[in-house]
């Protein structure tokens, strides 16, 4: 189309030299700028359910029982590791066995 109007830049952007881009707001002393985690209370019963669901989900994407068990003892899986730390190996075995019955130990 043969428009005759001139589009004009509404914002001239040159961040390295445009003084409008400098930080104008000072850091607030009372703003901690840190991650604030919201804690959620659970108990063993709730954790048992959560662990079972976790094992079920991983089982249904094709993980084997011992691979799933290894997640509990890996610190990188924070929630599972916390359960293992709090409740021990017995808890982990129960969680696995509730989904893989032939893994149950005598």
């Amino acid at each position: 189309m043969t428009a005759t109007w001139e589009p004009v830049r509404l914002l001239d952007v040159r961040p390295e030299i445009d003084p409008a881009f400098k930080v104008e707001k000072d850091v607030e002393a009372e703003d901690p700028l840190e991650l604030v985690g919201v804690t959620y209370p659970t108990d063993r019963e709730a954790d048992t359910i959560a662990a079972r669901c976790f094992v079920e989900e991983y089982a249904m994407i094709g993980w084997r029982a011992d691979d799933i068990a290894a997640l509990f003892t890996s610190p990188e899986y924070a929630a599972l590791y916390r359960m293992f730390s709090a409740y021990g190996f017995g808890f982990v075995h129960e969680a696995i066995a509730s989904v893989f019955p032939d893994q149950r130990r005598a």
């Binding site: 919201v38 959620y40 108990d43 709730a46 954790d47 359910i49 959560a50």
Partner: peptide, 19 residues
């Protein structure tokens, strides 16, 4: 983000979580 609906003493439950 990550805000749950309250924190009952019993925590998670099935089939529906309380919080």
């Amino acid at each position: 983000e990550d805000h749950a609906t309250g924190a009952p003493r019993t925590g998670a439950s099935l089939p529906e979580h309380e919080g």
